[in-house]
Design a binder for these strands. Sequence first.
RNA 1: GCGCCCAUAGCUCAACCGGAUAGAGCAACGCCCUUCUAAGGCGUAGGUUGUAGGUUCGAAUCCUACUGGGCGCACCA
Length: 586
Amino acid sequence: MKQHIADLISAALNTLSENGIIGADVQPSIMVENTRDKSHGDFATNIALALAKPARRNPRELAQLIIDALPVSANLEKTEIAGPGFINFFVTQASTAAVIGQIIEQKEQFGRGLASSAERTQVEFVSANPTGPLHVGHGRGAAYGASVADLLEAAGVPVEREYYVNDAGRQMNILATSVWLRYLEQLGVAITFPSNAYKGHYIQDIATSVSNAHADTFKRTLDEVMLDIPADEPQGGDKDAHIDALTERAQALLTEEGYAVFFNAALDSILSDIRDDLSSFGVSYQKWFSELSLTTDGDVESALNTLEENGYLFEEEGNLWFRSTAFGDDKDRVVRRANGLTTYFASDIAYLKNKFERGFDKVLYIWGADHHGYIARMKAACQALGYDPERLLVRLVQFAILYRGEERIQMSTRSGSFVTLRELRDEVGKDACRFFYVSRKADQHMDFDLELAKTQSKDNPIYYIQYAHARVCSVHRKLAEHDWTWNQDAGLSHLNRLDTEYEKDLITRLSKYPEVLTHAAVNYEPHLLANYLKELANDFHSYYNANKMLIDDSDLRNARITLSEATRQILNNGLSLLGVDSPEQM
RNA sequence: GCGCCCAUAGCUCAACCGGAUAGAGCAACGCCCUUCUAAGGCGUAGGUUGUAGGUUCGAAUCCUACUGGGCGCACCA
């Protein structure tokens, strides 16, 4: 309808242009907006205001000329000039109500594909280190990333979801070492557990699984393990030197294969836990990408070669540097240390190159707000590799602060209370988690109140929306009790009977779904859909309360049930894009 | 010190990328259940959009400075 009106305006402007009222060189961009106030009709345009200056006419006078030149349309009831020169369009009930038939016919397909594109977009999100279970801090990124990807797909953009597994680097070594030390403890070796090692209970479980599979094959004496190891921090030493020395000792005593047993046991166990966790959260990926593979497959070397060829590498003090300042970064970055090891950033560059080489037109990174400092260097790397930096997109997700009523829940790992995503989900449920996390704009700090998320009343938006869905289902059940059936055709052919204010509002709301979906998708703003669903549920509850559906007048009854069913369909479509279920009964 | 993000009703948040009288929910107050789920609905009240300038027909939105909050500034991951 918006497009239809824009076409009408365009035709009118052509007419005016031919008549010499506006200059032929004037190329206006026609904007048709949804009105905020019903008294302003259904749609409005500011075109007369925008053209007033070049046409050298006052806006209201110009608006009248445009209206006079508008082609006749059966969809329009009337037009009005308002305020400084807006043109308001009033659409007929019949043309608005036609949306109901489209929804009923297209079902879950309704509203999809409006931003259809051949541009493949990759969305990488969560990508938490596989050194422990997902934290609640990861929850918002998971919910946001999953919804953005689903929205893009719904809008018609080919999407791939990917998780970058940081299976290389020091943290993974500390993890493997932690497991080995717990393993030794369980076999009776009197280890003093390092202050900087991973202490979670899951480490014990992994250690147990290793000893179940390998008995005491990897047992070593305390003396073998601790010989010449520098002191830990509590003993007045350096905790980093201590744990790193233990890692080297583990590798030396166990040989590569033995060490790999602990390394892989830890990685596999934690990764499968993360997978399960995300899966239960309604989040799935097409690919889990190994950081380690970037080294073994030569991607890192290849990326550094490209930078070298393009002239952006230099050596200083034995280190190899990337001249990121050439692209506006604050400082240059080391990519290979004097000891020959490439840095984490070198992997990032290689990963970026790898993504583009896999044929993605756009790569979207979703990061926590604490990573904003990386944007400049990644953009720099993108350009230095020879790719258009516009193809690399970053969305930052601000932190969510958890509250239990008034009480703020501390998120420090040390406190140990309520830190994993799984615990959050167990307490408030998947649906409420998913919905709450995306109901705020991503770059807004948000407060997540657990008590509210668990409340089963209208105070809680997720129950409020799900209840609207369940209510429609309930009407269908009641219908059967009256020995009536829903006659869809009769409903569709009597949509003109839907003429109360509540019905008109609800129908108008339904007609907005496609543009809300599209807008939310292309702007990566799922909160727009969340808000829309709240408003749609609100419209439906108001309607439900004011107009009874199970009435003797069969034409009106069928029309109302058809409207309700269309509402149910949209609620279902929208909720599923946010990873929320649509229950038939509460 | 430098940089990024944020600031809207008492609280939690919107506002279709510059449009008309800035909107919802919660909290407060007043109503509606022998009627399809009251897990709901209707109404009232609530604002100098952090401050001060600027840009223009028009600003919560764009620009500048300031104030306050979050985060970052590794040869860590």
